[in-house]
């Protein structure tokens, strides 16, 4: 069997040798095994060609496509359908990425690249739906959502940061590599100085925004007589509207 395979391989790739081999092993090559061999070769080619687009669409300026999947549409589907759809989308995405690269190498514009965004959006939507179901299942079974646990910690500079937790083989005090990469404390004076200045900057920005809003509300009250004050309070919750409502400087140009 092995010998036969070797011969077939030789026959394929060395056309110069083919005549010699045909004279020696002619009946072997014409056996039914050879035909099956050919079919396998074709099959591999076909499966790998799934990475490429249909040859009809090659070199077109525009390829039309529908919109992406919405979450409300995906919520109706069963788990099995979602699982199938995920793999279809994944294959589509791979195909689009390879075609993008393919066109780029040939110095030609990739037609309708928004397809990649559409596929990615629908994949994201699908994942949200699956996550919802997963959460519901875990809440029923264990009383916790099966999400990855995390905590708010301080950075090495002193800024707040969300740290995603993970499982380890060894305890924390023994894990030197983890300690090097994850520093959650700041004990330097430079850090404190930086934080002081950073907070001052944030405070100044907040002040500026607050004053600007106040000024705008004052102007509105001055210009327009019948302003909906409840709506103003809704939009600008920081501004004390009642204070400015009947103030002396709110006397407008209208006739009393």
């Amino acid at each position: 069997m092995q010998m036969k395979l070797y011969i077939q391989a030789y026959y394929k790739f060395n056309p110069f040798l083919s005549n010699c081999i045909r004279s020696h092993f002619g009946p072997l090559l014409n056996s039914p095994n050879f035909a099956s061999f050919c079919t396998t070769r074709e099959r591999f080619n076909k499966n790998l060609m799934e990475f490429f687009e249909d040859k009809k669409n090659w070199g077109k300026d525009e390829i039309r496509s529908g919109r992406s999947w919405k979450t409300d549409e995906l919520r109706i589907k069963s788990n099995e359908d979602l699982h199938k759809l995920w793999y279809i989308l994944l294959k589509e995405k791979n195909m689009l990425l390879t075609m993008e690269h393919f066109y780029k190498e040939n110095y030609i514009l990739f037609p309708s690249p928004e397809r990649i965004d559409k596929v990615e959006e629908s994949m994201k939507n699908l994942e949200t739906v699956v996550r919802e179901r997963n959460k519901a299942y875990y809440m029923l079974e264990t009383g916790e959502d099966g999400e990855r646990p995390g905590v708010m910690v301080h950075n090495a500079i002193g800024l707040p940061m969300y740290h995603k937790q993970e499982q380890h083989d060894i305890p924390k005090y023994e894990n030197i590599q983890w300690k090097k990469n994850n520093v959650h404390e700041f004990d330097y004076e430079e850090c404190r100085e930086f934080l002081k200045l950073y907070r001052e900057k944030i405070r100044k920005e907040d002040n500026y925004r607050r004053k600007k809003n106040n000024r705008y509300v004052k102007g509105l009250l001055k210009r327009f007589k019948n302003v909906d004050i409840d709506y103003l309070k809704e939009i600008y919750p920081d501004v004390n509207v009642d204070q400015y409502k009947n103030h002396d400087f709110q006397i407008g140009h209208w006739e009393v």
Binding site: Q8, T40, L48, G59, I108
Partner: peptide, 16 residues
């Protein structure tokens, strides 16, 4: 062994 994959080529001139 024995299988082969030939990378397809675009007709750039036609498109251009």
């Amino acid at each position: 062994r024995g299988t082969e994959f030939i990378f397809p080529e675009l007709d750039c001139e036609e498109i251009k």
